[in-house]
């Protein structure tokens, strides 16, 4: 049962975060809502990757590789947006 505890806690945290971001989208407007939604979603993704995908217990090479994948997606979006936002 102790082996399952981290996964159960992760699941509870994910559902709680889901509740927070949906409530933020429904109740707030503007930048505040966007910030809460995006921060909450990033926390959910981080939880799934580290716990459900086992990155927490993975070797160094795999961690670097996985981080690189997410980082390059970030570069793709940020650099593309940088063009449109500064025109």
């Amino acid at each position: 049962m102790n082996d399952f505890r981290p996964y159960l806690l992760t699941w509870v945290a994910l559902l709680a975060l889901l509740g927070v971001i949906v409530a933020a989208a429904a109740l707030f407007d503007g930048l505040l809502a966007s910030m809460i939604v995006l921060a909450g979603a990033l926390c959910m993704i981080a939880l799934i990757i580290t716990l459900f995908m086992g990155l927490r217990s993975a070797g160094g090479l795999l961690r670097v590789y996985a981080t690189g994948g997410v980082l390059w997606l970030g570069f793709l979006i940020v650099l593309t947006l940088a063009d449109y936002l500064t025109r």
């Binding site: 971001i21 949906v22 989208a25 407007d29 503007g30 809502a33 966007s34 939604v37 995006l38 979603a41 959910m44 993704i45 799934i48 990757i49 459900f52 995908m53």
Partner: peptide, 20 residues
């Protein structure tokens, strides 16, 4: 399967929640 979860969190956030 977990990666499909991650993708859905992004899809859900972009499409459903950014309605401001």
């Amino acid at each position: 399967w977990a990666f499909v979860d991650v993708l859905w969190v992004v899809v859900f956030t972009l499409l459903y929640l950014l309605r401001l």
